[in-house]
């Protein structure tokens, strides 16, 4: 049952990922990308990571993609009628293929393939996924968390300076 569901979601994910590149209309591409994000969220649910799934939909599908769609609408980008160049297609496919190969090799060789970490799915079910992420973030990973916050703050200040003529 779960394998079947996984196969179905994967099919949807791959088809919509192809549509992202294949659609001529930028808005339709953006919609296909939203669909891909949704499939990723479903994977997170299947991996016993509901918090990640919710945040994935909320941040990527709900906020970032809305801004992208907003920009496309404001700039009024129309259907791109340029022809597809064959040499670019070949080059792109080759790069894509080798990246995929690289990823597979790394996953198979590294520790990521091993199922035994401190946070197995039984631990997650007992304590709760959100609680675990919160605890880790504010204890072991406090410094990276703070650095990310400062980075975001800098970005906000930069955006304000760019947008405002008089401060």
């Amino acid at each position: 049952m779960e394998t079947l569901f996984f196969a179905f979601i994967s099919l949807v994910a791959i088809v919509s990922a192809i549509l992202v590149v294949g659609c001529r209309n930028p808005i339709n591409s953006a919609l296909a990308l939203v669909m891909t994000f949704f499939c990723l969220a479903t994977y997170y649910v299947m991996l016993d990571a509901p918090f990640m799934a919710a945040v994935q939909v909320m941040v990527y599908a709900g906020a970032i993609m809305v801004l992208i769609v907003f920009t496309i609408m404001l700039l009024n980008i129309r259907v791109n009628a340029s022809k597809i160049a064959t040499h670019k297609l070949v080059l792109g496919s080759a790069i894509g293929f080798f990246t995929l190969l690289n990823t597979i090799v790394i996953i198979l060789k590294s520790r990521a393939a091993l199922p035994n970490g401190p946070y197995s799915s039984t631990v997650i079910k007992q304590v709760g996924h959100t609680e675990l992420i919160g605890r880790e973030m504010f204890t072991n990973f406090l410094l990276p968390f703070e650095i990310t916050s400062i980075l975001l703050l800098v970005a906000i200040v930069g955006a304000v300076i760019l947008a405002k003529k008089k401060i």
């Binding site: 808005i27 919609l31 939203v34 509901p50 918090f51 799934a53 919710a54 945040v55 939909v57 909320m58 599908a61 709900g62 906020a63 809305v66 769609v69 907003f70 609408m73 709760g128 996924h129 959100t130």
Partner: peptide, 20 residues
């Protein structure tokens, strides 16, 4: 486990309908 976040996530998808 993340009921409220689920609702926030879904309501954030509703905007697509109107924008589109």
């Amino acid at each position: 486990n993340v009921g409220v976040l689920y609702i926030l996530a879904m309501s954030s998808l509703g905007v697509y309908g109107i924008v589109l």
